[in-house]
Simulated assay, not measured.
Amino acid sequence: MKNVKWPLLVYAILAATSIMGIGIAISEKSITGAIGCIVAIIVIMGMGFKTKRKMRENGEI
């Protein structure tokens, strides 16, 4: 557990949850839910990549 990058793990879990949400929204025939989950995945992935870039610049990765 020493080498775990906790912020990146949290972003990965949130992204996976959003992807599951897309599937659930589609099965429930909820267009707004699917669109909301798609927006969420875009935001979460963007924040994850931004965090990874900052960590790389600071020598943490």
Results as ranks from 00 to 15, higher is better:
residue 37 C to T: 07
residue 27 S to L: 09
residue 26 I to L: 09
residue 21 G to A: 15
residue 14 L to K: 13
residue 10 V to W: 11
residue 23 G to N: 13
residue 9 L to V: 10
residue 33 G to F: 12
residue 14 L to Y: 06
residue 56 R to I: 12
residue 34 A to V: 08
residue 49 F to W: 13
residue 38 I to K: 09
residue 22 I to M: 15
residue 55 M to C: 03
residue 7 P to F: 01
residue 56 R to E: 14
residue 41 I to M: 08
residue 35 I to W: 08
residue 33 G to I: 01
residue 36 G to Y: 05
residue 44 I to G: 01
residue 47 M to F: 13
residue 36 G to S: 09
residue 45 M to Y: 05
residue 38 I to S: 15
residue 6 W to I: 04
residue 39 V to A: 15
residue 41 I to Y: 06
residue 54 K to S: 05
residue 9 L to E: 12
residue 10 V to H: 10
residue 33 G to Y: 03
residue 20 M to G: 14
residue 19 I to N: 04
residue 55 M to S: 07
residue 37 C to H: 11
residue 7 P to N: 09
residue 29 K to V: 01
residue 54 K to D: 06
residue 25 A to R: 04
residue 31 I to N: 04
residue 13 I to S: 12
residue 46 G to S: 13
residue 14 L to E: 15
residue 24 I to C: 01
residue 14 L to F: 11
residue 15 A to Q: 05
residue 12 A to P: 01
residue 50 K to W: 06
residue 28 E to K: 15
residue 23 G to H: 10
residue 14 L to D: 14
residue 25 A to V: 01
residue 49 F to V: 02
residue 26 I to P: 00
residue 27 S to K: 14
residue 12 A to E: 13
residue 5 K to T: 01
residue 31 I to P: 00
residue 52 K to D: 13
residue 18 S to G: 15
residue 53 R to K: 15
residue 47 M to E: 07
residue 13 I to V: 14
residue 22 I to R: 04
residue 41 I to P: 00
residue 17 T to G: 08
